[in-house]
Simulated assay, not measured.
Amino acid sequence: MSPPLIELIGATKRFPSGTGSVHTAVSDLTLAVRPGEFVAVVGPTGCGKSTTLSLVSGLQPPSAGQVRVHGRPVESIPDGVGYMFQTDAVMPWRSVLDNVASGPRFRGVPKAEAREQAADWISRVGLAGFEKYYPHQLSGGMRKRVALAQTLVTSPRILLMDEPFSALDVQTRALMQDELLRLWSGTGAAVIFVTHDLEEAVALADRVVVLTASPATVKDVFDVGLPRPRRVEELRLTEEFLAIYREVWESLRTEVEKSRAGGRTDVA
C-alpha cells in the first residue's frame, strides 16, 4: 500500500471560549488518508468536523499532536490542496471564465494559458457556453459547478470538501455528487469530505469515519466496499448500500444522542 498522503496523529485543537476558559474542539484525533482515497467524515453537529479540515489545510495549527501532509508537518497551507467550502467562493465581479482562471493565475500561469485551462474545466463540469456569465446570472447548482471547476483546475493532490452540496435541492445535489465522482475518478487525489448527510457519505466514500460528540475523536471507521464507478441515485436503492448505512448509523446515532443531550452546537 502507498504511504499516507494525509496524517493526523493524536491531533488536538483548543480554542479560547467567550467566558475566558478553553474549549477543546478535537482531541487525540488520529486518521490517515492515502492517495486516491475518498474518506467521508460524519459526526454530530458541532463536534469538530470542520476544525479537522482546518488542521489539514494549515488554516489552524494543532494545539497538540501532529498533522502531516506529504510526510511533512503542516506549518502553512500545503502545496496541492484544493478546498471547497459550504458557501461557494466565486467572485461576483468576475465572469465564470475569470473565476475559474483565477487559481492558475495566482500560481503564475500566463493569462492565455490560465484561460485555456479554465475553459477546459468549465466544459468538464457541464458549463460550456456560460464562460461570459456572471455568478448572479447562474442557478445555485451552476454556481457549485463553477466552484468545483475552481477547485479542480489546479489539479490538487488533496481535496478538502466541507459540506459543499448541503445548500442544494435534492435533485441537484444528486447530480453534483455524480459529477464529483466522475471528475475525481482517476486523478489520484485524496479526498476528505465532511457531511451531515450519512447517505451522501456512504454513496461517495471508500471509508466513512464517525467522530464522537465534542470534543471529537475517531470513534469508528467503516470500509465501503461498493464497486466503482457509482451512480448515486441507483446505488441508494441497493441492499448492499442499505446494509452499510445501517451499520454506520448505529455507530453515529449514539453520538448524535449524546450531542443533543449535552446541547453543544457552538463549534463546527
Rank of each mutant, 00 (worst) to 15 (best):
A190I: 13
Q137V: 05
V125M: 06
V125P: 01
V125N: 10
R124F: 07
A147P: 02
Y133E: 06
M142R: 03
M142T: 06
L180R: 04
L148K: 00
V153E: 12
D162P: 08
R157Q: 14
P164F: 13
A174S: 14
D169T: 01
L183D: 10
G186Q: 13
S123Q: 13
G188T: 12
A167K: 11
K144M: 15
L160T: 08
T154D: 03
M142A: 04
W121L: 02
P156S: 10
L175D: 12
I158N: 01
T154I: 14
T154K: 02
G129Y: 07
V146N: 00
A189H: 05
G126I: 04
K144H: 09
G126L: 02
A174W: 14
Y133D: 04
T172D: 09
A149Q: 04
L159W: 11
I122K: 02
Q150G: 07
T151N: 08
G188W: 12
L160Y: 09
L148E: 07
Q137T: 00
M176R: 12
L180T: 15
S139Q: 01
I122S: 01
W121V: 03
V170W: 06
S123T: 15
P135M: 13
A149P: 13
A190K: 07
A147W: 02
T151D: 06
G188E: 12
M142D: 01
L160A: 12
W184M: 08
T151G: 08
D120P: 02
A190T: 07
S139M: 09
G186W: 14
W184N: 06
M142G: 02
G186A: 12
G140F: 09
W121R: 13
L175W: 01
A190S: 15
S166L: 05
T172F: 00
I122V: 13
S185D: 15
T172W: 00
V191S: 14
K132L: 08
S139H: 02
E179M: 14
L160S: 10
A128N: 04
T187Q: 10
V146H: 10
T187Y: 09
E163D: 06
M142K: 05
T154W: 02
R124T: 03
L183H: 14
S166M: 04
G188I: 03
L127C: 05
D178P: 00
R182N: 09
G186N: 14
V125F: 03
S155G: 03
V170Y: 06
S185E: 15
Q137A: 15
A190C: 13
A147S: 14
G129M: 03
R157M: 00
D178I: 12
F165C: 04
L181N: 07
K132F: 01
G129T: 09
M176Q: 08
H136L: 13
T172L: 04
G126F: 07
D178A: 02
A128H: 07
P156K: 10
